[in-house]
Write a protein that binds this DNA or RNA. Structure first.
Length: 1092
RNA sequence: GGGCCUGUAGCUCAGUUGGUUAGAGCGCGACACUGAUAAUGUCGAGGUCCGUGGUUCGACUCCACGCAGGCCCA
């Protein structure tokens, strides 16, 4: 029996499908079945379960899922292991907030062990919600045995990787610039700077100082700074390579000495008033009070010219360990403020350090006995003794000293006396403050561990070229540019909940050891025990936890017998996830073969925000240690925005709850909407109304089509049979099959090209336009007609064939409804276990596809003409007229056209008859390149020709134009039959048709019969009869209608399933209904009970 | 400030290697059809293809410079 499922109810059916998948372990079966097939490797980017999943997760996961499902159907073995990202700052911050702690409290007010335990619990808080989402949305991924980044085995693999970096000399210790609070004596995180109120307006002295060129006497570079205290640490100057600079002849504003200064042209008005240019170039003109300076521009030149020049430092307290005091290009140099020349102090600015490193500029700093960097300002915020002029002075008032004298002022004064101060002002700007001490922060060098990514750039770029990016622009642009200029990766974090750095060092830094496995650490601890440094070996415990604080308690023995302590940092959590190809299998300690078969990935998919996150760390680790890509293809998805295009946020209250959505519309509807709406890499504007519309238009139509099939197949007891030979099928059947195969071909192409949006749109178009609106509409009669002949059986077979195919093609995107269809069309097993269908080219008939397309357009034109004529479609019309050239393709389909628009015949009009007029235009595509500018003249000439002349051109294929014979190849001219004068006609897109609306009495009577049948069908329905019920009919109509209609009795009886039809001489005692809008029609209808 | 993406009807989106009348769906208005009926068809209104300049016989399409929005990074 073919089952009617009732009105579309995706949420309910999805629950039923889920129950079936659970009970039958369909996912596991679909995997097991493909074991031994080609391997398609997919990596699941591990989410963090410390927050609730949102709609954007549904988007990303739909893309992952559909590719994996597609590949599985293609016969590939697609292992899909879930994972959890568990470490990192967001977790720590959440826990700090909950427990009311600050970073400084950890290890003091709360033990690290307790703190980390709290983090471990917090990070899996929403695991249940995530698991529920995964299942509910139909994301097939193995949840029962996920990899978890805090597992000891996972960490051991990460240690192994880190040791590989270490051994290759790619892991090293250096320093980085971080926000630091001298008053609190602690580094601050970026997050702490983002706390409300951290940025406050402050007034700082802003000074412009002169750096003297080392060669040219009297030539100075003007640089501007709001932190004069960093000037003793100046190591370089930076300019914009493409900015325009000028050399200006003027005077030192305080000493009136003639000097030449260099600054950006754009900065000129900030330092010189226009009148200065016309003042005599004389020291007397220098106005000390207003700062007015006479000047002359001597030269204009590009910033490039400045690069490499050397200058005298303002202060020389310390000798640099290399070539400092040069001019460099800096991409951060701005013309908005200052002089366009930026003072660089690598020890006190992140940009400064970056550009200095890039160009090999040493920091201006001291070293302690162990070689550690000592900046010229100490950790209390005081100048070190070596800065003799300002030794011991606090650079800001950290101690709330009422007598504090700003050192910045003294530095300015000092420079002024030396004739090196060009301008001093006060500058009000926002500056970050320590939220605990309310004191301004310092950007200060902090020691850190780095991965030397800069040494890998070429390899990263070369390998990236082998990765297929969807879309390619991200791989070339955003990602490609990033890795081509990659800076070293600051790996260490002075935090607690993370994978500890497995590096031990002696206090003096002379000895250092990187540990690559638990076994190695165990052995090292044993050595330490023998040396009396350790009493027990924590690695003897079966449940050794490699997190802090336990690893911190391990002390190792250096070759000289001295103790080595662990470097206190944990690593950047991005390394955790980038390590997942190896660590998920505990490679290399286990699963060698499994790892080999699952590396690299064929496919990953994540949001565009992962470009410098997971995409990057996967790539760096694989390239550095395995000379390989980590993934061969990557599908990037955009953001999910609200329908206004705003980012979803709790603050705006526009967050969409995926569970509510799936509850109301269904997971399939949500998935389909997200995939079909826009290409994955575009941002999706999420609009619930459109989702609802998608349910109605696509799923509703598809389901209606299934219900239509099930209804009649059920009534007739249709049994599945193979497709009959194509020659035995009707034109519409052949056409539909051809379209099915075309669809299969194009959908396959779209999936193969990682463009599921196109696949979804193709399927939608097929289902709505081809299958439902055309095939089913044209063939309805075949399904409900009485005889169960081969034609009827063929219709069932073809329709079912198409529906089964649709189920398979849509299965990756809408796995639930595809399953419902599959099951109810009585296919075996699960659609997800079936083989993705290969297009059968033998069933293709492109000519028929095109002919049908044109026929549809003709039908549309004729409908339009009927509309103009005001004659209802039920009234048959005698004929339509079309050009004879249509005959070849239209004739086989003519019956369809005639019945669709209720015509008696199609008449082909000779192309050369006077009933047709033509319009000829040049084919711009072929003639354009040949004729160039003349083509417009040709077009005008063709427009001017008479119909006779046009006909000659068409027949002869040559054209005499401007005295020359222009020989025309096939297709050089576009000929259009324009109109059929004298008839009601229409043209569109190269098709033209006319309608004959003259009615004969016979046609009119037939129209009445149709009208009557229509009314009787309505009456049947109003009487509550089933479509299969047989009836007895008695009718009465005024003359002459009744007599005329008697001739149509057999037709009427057949169409309305009337066993008896009686024409009454007098009206029965019933309410009449109106016939043809004005006449009374009496209908006596009763059900005919079957005789048992 | 840099990199990348996007800009086409009220809304969501198509638009082939440049080819002369820029399309679809939704929404809106009107009419029709109806044995899939909470379906369907036809007609209508609705466009400076973000702007400016350039290349070209011809530009929504290619180039340059802008503008607006988004993301990532400074």
């Amino acid at each position: 029996m073919w089952r009617s499922l009732g009105p579309l109810n995706l949420p309910q059916w999805e629950q039923e499908v889920l129950a079936r998948w659970r009970a039958e372990k369909t996912f596991q079966r679909s995997l097991a079945q493909r074991k031994g097939g080609p391997t398609f490797v997919f990596y699941e980017g591990p989410p963090s379960a410390n927050g609730k999943p949102g709609i954007h997760h549904v988007f990303a996961r739909t893309l992952k899922d559909l590719v994996c499902r597609y590949q599985t159907m293609r016969g590939a073995y697609v292992l899909r292991r879930a994972g959890w990202d568990t470490h990192g700052l967001p977790v720590e911050l959440a826990v700090e907030k909950e427990l009311g702690l600050t970073k400084a409290d950890i290890g003091t007010r709360i033990a690290i062990a307790d703190y980390n335990r709290a983090c471990k619990e917090a990070v899996m808080r929403y695991k249940a919600a995530w698991d529920e989402l995964t299942e509910r949305m139909g994301y097939w991924v193995a949840l029962d045995d996920p990899y978890i980044t805090f597992d000891a085995q996972y960490i051991e693999s990460v240690w192994w990787l880190l040791k590989k970096f270490y051994e290759k000399g790619l892991l090293y210790k250096d320093y980085t610039i971080q926000p630091y609070s001298p008053a609190a004596g602690t580094a601050l995180s970026q997050h702490e700077l983002n706390l409300p109120g951290a940025y406050r307006p402050v007034k700082d002295p802003s000074i412009t100082v002169q750096f003297a060129d080392i060669q040219e006497q009297g030539l100075y570079y003007l640089a501007w700074t709001t932190t004069p205290w960093t000037l003793p640490s100046n190591a370089a100057l930076a300019v914009g390579e493409n900015f325009v600079y000028v050399e200006v002849e003027t005077f030192q504003p305080y000493t009136r000495t003639p000097i030449r200064v260099v600054l950006a042209e754009a900065a000129l008005p900030r330092y010189f008033t226009p009148e200065g240019a016309s003042l005599p170039l004389s020291p007397e003109e220098v106005d000390l009070r207003t700062g007015r300076l006479p000047y002359r521009i001597r030269r204009r030149f590009s910033g490039k010219e400045l690069i490499g020049r050397r200058y005298e430092p303002l202060f020389r307290y310390v000798e640099p360990e290399g070539e400092a005091w040069r001019i460099l290009p800096g991409d951060f140099v701005s013309l908005e403020e200052g002089t366009g020349i930026v003072h660089i102090a690598p020890t006190f600015g992140a940009d400064d350090l970056r550009v200095a490193r890039k160009h090999g500029i040493p920091p201006i700093a001291l070293r302690d006995a162990q070689g550690h960097l000592l900046p010229l300002v100490d950790k209390e915020g005081r100048f070190v003794p070596e800065v003799t002029d300002f030794a011991g002075r606090y650079v800001k008032n950290y101690k709330d000293d009422p007598d504090y004298k700003p050192v910045d002022e003294d530095i300015a004064q000092h420079l002024r006396q030396r004739g090196l101060l060009f301008r001093k002002e006060t500058y009000e700007h926002n500056y970050p403050h320590c939220w605990r001490t309310d004191k301004p922060i310092l950007y200060y060098p902090v020691e850190a561990w780095f991965i030397r990514v800069s040494a890998l750039r070429e390899k990263l770029v070369a390998l990236n070229k082998t990765i297929q990016w969807f879309p390619p622009s991200i791989g070339e642009g955003r990602f490609g540019n990033w890795i081509a200029n990659a800076e070293d990766w600051n790996l260490s974090r002075t935090r607690f909940w993370g994978i500890p750095l497995p590096i031990w060092r002696t206090r003096d830094g002379r000895y250092e050891r990187c540990i690559g496995s638990f076994a190695e650490l165990h052995a090292a601890v044993e050595e330490a025990r023998q040396a009396g440094l350790m009493t027990t070996n924590p690695l003897d415990a079966p449940d050794f936890d490699p997190h802090r604080p336990y690893v911190d308690e391990i002390i190792l023995k250096a070759p000289d017998g001295s103790p080595m302590y662990r470097e206190p940092e944990v690593i950047d959590v991005w390394f955790d996830s980038g390590a997942m190809p190896y660590a998920q299998w505990h490679y290399p300690f286990e699963n060698e073969a499994l790892f080999q078969s699952q590396f690299p990935a064929d496919f990953i998919a994540e949001g565009v925000d992962q470009t410098r996150g997971w995409f990057y760390t996967l790539h760096v680790i694989a390239a550095a240690l395995f000379d390989s890509v980590a993934y061969k293809r990557v599908l990037v998805n955009g953001l999910v925005l609200d329908k206004e295009g705003n980012k979803m946020s709790k603050r705006l209250g526009n967050v969409v709850d995926p569970f509510a959505l799936m509850e109301q519309y269904g997971a399939d509807a949500t998935r389909w909407y997200l995939v079909s709406n826009a290409p994955p890499w575009e941002n999706v504007r999420f609009d619930e109304k459109r989702l609802a519309e998608k349910v109605r238009s696509f799923f509703g139509t598809l389901h209606n089509t299934y219900e239509f099939f099930a209804l009649y197949a059920g009534i007739d007891g249709y049994e599945i049979q193979p497709l009959p030979p194509i020659q035995q099928l009707s034109m519409t059947d052949r056409w539909l099959l051809s379209e099915v195969e075309k669809l299969t071909e194009k959908v396959t192409e779209a999936y193969e090209g990682y463009f599921p949006t196109e696949a979804a749109r193709l399927i939608e178009d097929f289902v709505i336009e081809k299958l439902s609106n055309w095939y089913v509409r044209l063939n309805r009669r075949r399904f409900w007609k009485g005889e169960k002949d081969s034609d009827k059986w063929a219709a069932f077979t073809v329709l079912r064939y198409a529906l089964v195919r649709v189920a398979q093609l849509m299965a990756p995107i809408a796995p639930f409804y595809a399953e419902v269809l599959w099951e109810n069309l009585k296919e075996k097993g699960s659609v997800h276990e079936s083989d993705f269908p290969a297009a059968d080219s033998a069933l293709r008939d492109p000519a028929l596809e095109e002919a049908m397309d044109k026929t549809r357009r003709l039908a549309s034109l004729l409908h339009s003409l009927r509309k103009q004529s005001g004659i209802r479609v039920r009234q048959p019309l005698p004929q339509a007229l079309v050009p004879a050239s249509y005959k070849s393709w239209l004739e086989p389909l003519a019956p369809l056209l005639l019945s669709e628009v209720n015509l008696k015949q199609l008449t082909y009009i000779d192309d050369h008859s006077e009933a047709v007029t033509y319009e000829i235009r040049p084919n711009y595509k072929t003639l354009g390149p040949r004729l160039g500018a003349h083509i417009q003249a040709l077009a005008a000439y063709l427009r001017s020709l008479s119909q006779e002349a046009l006909l000659r051109v068409i027949q002869q294929g040559t054209l005499v134009w401007e005295g020359e014979t222009l020989s025309l190849a096939q297709g050089d001219l576009e000929v259009r039959a324009r109109a059929l004068p004298g008839w009601l006609h229409a043209s569109e897109g190269g098709l033209t048709v006319a309608l004959d609306t003259r009615l004969s009495p016979e046609l009119e009577h037939e129209g009445w019969a149709r009208e009557l049948i229509h009314l009787l069908q309505n009456a049947r329905k109003n009487a509550g009869l089933a479509v299969t019920d047989r009836i007895h009919l008695a009718l009465h109509l005024p003359e002459p209608y009744q007599s005329a209609l008697k001739a149509f009795s057999p037709l009427i009886a057949q169409e309305t399933l009337a066993e008896t039809l009686t024409w009454l001489e007098t009206p029965p005692p019933l309410e009449p209904i109106s016939f043809l809008d004005t006449l009374p029609l009496y209908i006596d209808i009763s059900r005919a009970y079957e005789h048992a």
